[in-house]
């Protein structure tokens, strides 16, 4: 089966190919290094697989409820585009009884290319609701080697904001707000955590004419992304 990616579709993928970085803040002074692999789902030789885009992330527990982080995108780098993220995640509220929390994550996406040295900056805000259904995130032991497993599921939205009012050929920019819903699960010990996220990207982008071997059982717009992330947690010293 001939796989044909349309240029337009690849653009869509590269422009929005990352999951929520951190849904639950680290503990104060904890550090985390994580690597993410994944992208929109495609049909490849009769298998449904995610396009293997990558990003590498570092995070630091600044306060009890606030973690700052940065990320780089190696896949974009390979195409001559420096794409970096600087952001934080803040626990807005946590309901002790139900173990449900709400977090918000403002992020600044900075992109530039090495070909024409164009620069773009995109503010992003992720809002997630999570349910800590296994273990207790709030009372998890900070000591390395803790084998107790905690897990949570989350549901939220990624919001990208386009600051430019015009685009190529002096046309008005049609959207200044892009929305992508996501759902995910995160589980692991105090030292290692793993997460899997599904994200619906390009809600309004028709996918019929942009790619042949495309997997989206839900609709003819957008793409469903699947992302796997491994986190190594370094306890506070």
């Amino acid at each position: 089966m001939r796989i044909f990616y349309c240029f337009a579709f690849l653009v869509l993928l590269l422009a929005s190919c990352a999951p929520s970085r951190y849904v639950v803040p680290l503990k104060k002074k904890e550090q985390s290094l994580s690597m993410n692999l994944g992208g929109p789902l495609i049909n490849f030789h009769n298998l449904v697989i995610p396009v293997p885009f990558t990003s590498i992330n570092y995070a630091y527990g600044l306060k009890k409820n606030t973690t700052v982080f940065g990320a780089v995108h190696p896949t974009a780098l390979a195409y001559g585009v420096g794409q970096m993220e600087l952001g934080l995640v803040h626990r807005v509220h946590y309901f002790e009884g139900s173990k449900i929390g709400i977090s918000a994550s403002p992020v600044l996406n900075v992109m530039f290319d090495r070909w024409d040295w164009n620069l773009r900056v995109y503010p992003q805000v992720d809002v997630n609701v999570y349910w800590n259904f296994l273990g207790d995130l709030a009372r998890h032991c900070d000591c390395p080697g803790d084998k107790k497993t905690t897990a949570y599921v989350y549901l939220g939205f990624t919001n990208w904001f386009e600051l430019n009012r015009t685009r190529a050929n002096n046309q008005a920019q049609p959207n200044n707000w892009l929305l992508a819903p996501q759902v995910g699960i995160n589980m692991g010990t105090a030292s290692w955590k793993y997460s899997l996220e599904l994200k619906y990207m390009g809600l309004l982008t028709n996918n019929n004419d942009v790619v042949v071997s495309y997997f989206n059982p839900i609709s003819s717009t957008g793409a469903i992304g699947a992302y796997f992330t491994v986190y190594k947690i370094f306890a506070a010293k």
Partner: peptide
């Protein structure tokens, strides 16, 4: 058009 953003 594809990105929905005014990317260069």
């Amino acid at each position: 058009d594809a990105a929905q953003l005014a990317l260069p």
